[in-house]
Design a protein around this nucleic acid. Structure first.
Length: 552
RNA sequence: CUGCUCGUAGCUCAACUGGAUAGAGCACCAGCCUUCUAAGCUGGGGGUUACAGGUUCGAUUCCUGUCGGGCAGGCCA
């Protein structure tokens, strides 16, 4: 529809301008129904080069429009907008189209089945997942679903930082608990993790428990001085806990990558050697530096410390080189905004490898912090103090659907306030129910009709003429565009906003019009329309990973 | 101090990436169930889009500055 009208405008403009190649005809959907179904600002764009009044140009364009059956009326409005009113037939056609495509309606092939990897969550195995991880999980998973709907071949990946200082800290903390120490006792690690889950780990360790996580199985030795066993057990224990968190959130990963594997397989050392060979490093003060300033960083960064270990961004670079070598021409990292300073460093390291990795690779989607409120006060997220809201608690309190929706329905780059009392007390007022309710209402009507839904595919739609019906059909027609632009902007929240609008159009229709009327032709047309709406609600909700219940 | 980011109704958030009279939900007021689910609908009040300039036919959106919040700025991760 949009393309058809754009082509018509282009035809008309060609009679006014010789060179149309630089012209970008923008067709948008006006907010107000008075302004038609589509509008273009092309006349205003042309006003300057043609040195004419925009409204006069608009009139010339209208006069030059080829004959067609799509447009029923054209207006000039405001400073020179051209408003197009689409004929009723053309609007109704969307219903048939949805019946034809079904679950595939809204999907496109823009990605051309190319590989894309999305890394998200990637929490350190030092504690259960909290709300902040939940936001990353919800946004990341929706991004994957969006990319899939846009024809990409998606790999979901979780990266474990299971090497380094924080794991040492975890080990020390568990060791202290195993030896019967409490955080207030002398000898408990100063920066140790104080949460109760450390006690759970210690008890399981002493009970010689066996833990299965992803691809590994670990049995505790129970030896109170065996730090190596404690380390392995603690990491496995927490990975298992995180698996359960993700399971409760209905998120599955295709690949788990381990930082420790990068070391044991020599890939970190390899990357360092490559960087040295490329000539972008130098020795200073007994340390090895990478000249990241050559790639846009504000200062050079240490790679190998004086004492010998590598700094954290070195394995990060090695890891991303691996991603590149695995054939991902497109990689998206979904992370908390507190990691933004690593972006420059990782990209600089990859550039310095001189292996043809593009400058803006990988892409990043950063989400801002989640502030948790309880009892009108902010709950500080402190892993050390052990005072924080776990993702699993949240899911148990407000449900998986509501939690996912709440965390994905907002633009990632604005801060999010998660009021636990509100989410718990007003479960029924959560916007997700508004959308699901629309779906359940449609299901209920169809159940009472008790006819063959597939037969509606060929229903005569000409009775659909009212304002609420027109508004609903227009909303349905927008869905494919929303799927496309949400993917381009890497903005899953656009889907959530769209679904709210679609649900609103359905509820208005429901209250305004009775569907199960005596007159058969009218009844079938209306049922066809709401069935098409149900399909789009389902398709949209599935992009968010939210269920579409038939009863509520 | 420097960089990134955000600032929209009392609160939580939108605004199709520069469009027309800035929209929803909570909360407040007034209506709508003998009719398909009232977890809904209709109407009303509530705004100098933090502030000051600039760019242009047109700015919540882009640029500059100021103020305010968040996050970074380790040979920590």
């Amino acid at each position: 529809m949009k393309q058809t009208i754009t082509a018509l405008i282009l035809q008309a403009v060609k009679s006014l301008v010789e060179d149309t190649s630089s012209l970008n005809i923008i067709l948008e959907r006006p907010k107000s129904a008075d302004h038609g179904d589509f509008a273009t600002n092309i006349a205003m764009q042309l006003a300057k080069p043609l040195k004419q009044n925009p409204r006069a140009i608009a009139q010339q364009i209208i006069d030059g429009l080829p004959a067609n059956t799509v447009i029923s009326k054209v207006d000039i409005a405001g400073a020179g907008f051209i408003n197009f009113f689409v004929s009723a037939d053309s609007k109704q056609a969307i219903v048939h189209e949805i019946f034809k495509s079904g679950a595939a309606f809204g999907r496109n092939q823009a990605g051309q089945a190319e590989k894309v990897q999305v890394e998200f969550v990637s929490a350190n195995p030092t504690g259960p997942l909290h709300v902040g991880h939940g936001r990353g999980a919800a946004v990341g998973d929706c991004l994957c679903r969006l990319l899939d709907a846009n024809g990409w071949q998606v790999t979901r990946e979780f990266y474990y930082n299971d090497a380094g200082a924080q794991i040492d800290n975890l080990t020390k903390s568990v060791l202290a608990r195993v030896q019967g120490l409490s955080p207030d006792d002398a000898g408990f690690p100063e920066d140790g993790y104080r949460g109760d889950y450390i006690v759970d780990i210690a008890e399981a360790y002493l009970a010689k428990a066996t833990i299965t996580a992803d691809d590994m199985q670990v049995t505790a030795s129970g030896d109170v001085s065996d730090t190596d066993s404690i380390r392995k057990f603690a990491v496995a224990y927490l990975r298992h806990e995180q698996d359960l968190d993700l399971q409760a959130f209905q998120i599955k990963f295709d690949v788990f990558s381990l930082e420790s594997a990068l070391y044991s397989e020599g890939k970190v050392e390899n990357t360092v050697q490559s960087l040295i060979a490329s000539g972008h490093t130098y020795e200073l003060d007994d340390a090895l530096w990478l000249r990241t300033t050559a790639f846009g960083d504000d200062k050079d960064r240490v790679m190998r410390k004086k004492e010998g270990g590598f700094t954290y961004f070195v394995p990060d670079v090695a890891y991303h080189r691996e991603k590149w070598n695995r054939g991902f021409k497109r990689v998206i990292n979904e992370q908390g905004a507190d990691h933004h300073s690593t972006i420059t460093r990782v990209r600089a390291g990859l550039q310095a490898l001189d292996v043809g990795i593009p400058q803006g690779w990988p892409e990043y989607v950063l989400h801002q912090m989640v502030t948790v409120m309880r009892g009108g006060e902010e709950v500080k997220l402190s892993k050390r103090a052990g005072s924080y809201v776990t993702l699993r608690d949240l899911i148990e309190e407000v449900g998986c659907d509501a939690t996912r929706y709440f965390l994905a329905a907002r633009s990632p780059d604005s801060q999010l306030v998660f009021d636990i009392d509100l989410a718990r007390a007003q479960t029924n007022d959560n916007p997700v129910y508004y959308i699901q309710y629309a779906h359940a209402r449609i299901c209920s009507v169809l159940t009472q009709w008790n006819g063959d839904v597939t037969s509606l595919a060929t229903a005569d739609l000409s009775p659909l003429q009212s304002a609420t019906e027109t508004a609903l059909m227009q909303a349905l027609g927008q869905y494919p565009e929303v799927v496309s632009s949400a993917c381009q902007a890497l903005a899953p929240h656009m889907i959530a906003n769209y679904l709210k609008e679609l649900a609103s159009a359905l509820h208005s229709y429901y209250n305004d019009t009775k569907f199960l009327v005596d007159e058969s032709q009218v009844k079938l047309a209306r049922l066809a329309l709401i069935t098409a709406t149900r399909t789009v609600l389902r398709n949209g909700l599935s992009l968010l990973g939210v269920s579409a219940p038939e009863k509520m």
